[in-house]
């Protein structure tokens, strides 16, 4: 049976509402996206939604106790909580610079956790 879904694209602030009709993995109709990225996004959404995870990790010896982090690529939404479990136990040592890799392949996924802010050594 064909299924229909309304998806709002999260890739940019336009937030286009995309209507997608599909049968299993086959797309029958897709409309509403202002740019081609939206169609790819909608197709991905019905198969396996992907998200960039942002969170924070504890820092030792820094001028703040947390460093904000993100996954350097989108990860499957259903794996987000697995990464959170790993992140909860992580500790890094100051200093940290923006873009530093904090951890490779968390929970066995193809991505890295990278720092999104700098933390200086506490003096």
């Amino acid at each position: 049976m064909t299924e229909e879904k309304d998806i709002s694209c999260i890739l940019c602030p336009n937030g286009c509402d995309i209507k997608i009709k599909y049968l299993d993995d086959e797309i029958i109709e897709i409309e509403g996206a202002l740019c081609p990225k939206g169609n790819d996004y909608a197709k991905q959404e019905i198969k396996n939604p992907m998200r960039t995870l942002t969170s924070s990790v504890m820092v030792e010896g820094g001028d703040t106790s947390l460093v904000s982090v993100k996954t350097d690529k989108p990860v499957p939404l259903e794996k987000v909580m697995d990464i959170m479990d790993v992140i909860d136990d992580l500790r890094v040592k100051a200093p940290v610079s923006v873009g530093d890799v904090i951890l490779d392949s968390p929970a066995g996924l193809d991505c890295s956790i990278v720092a999104t802010r700098e933390v200086k050594i506490n003096i």
Binding site: C12, P13, T52, T54, S56, S68, K70, V98, R117
Partner: peptide, 18 residues
């Protein structure tokens, strides 16, 4: 610390601190 900043200015998705 979430992302969604900078799409117009830098054509990429950044977090607030970035």
């Amino acid at each position: 610390i979430h992302d969604g900043f900078g799409l117009h200015k830098f054509k990429e998705v950044l977090t607030g601190p970035e």
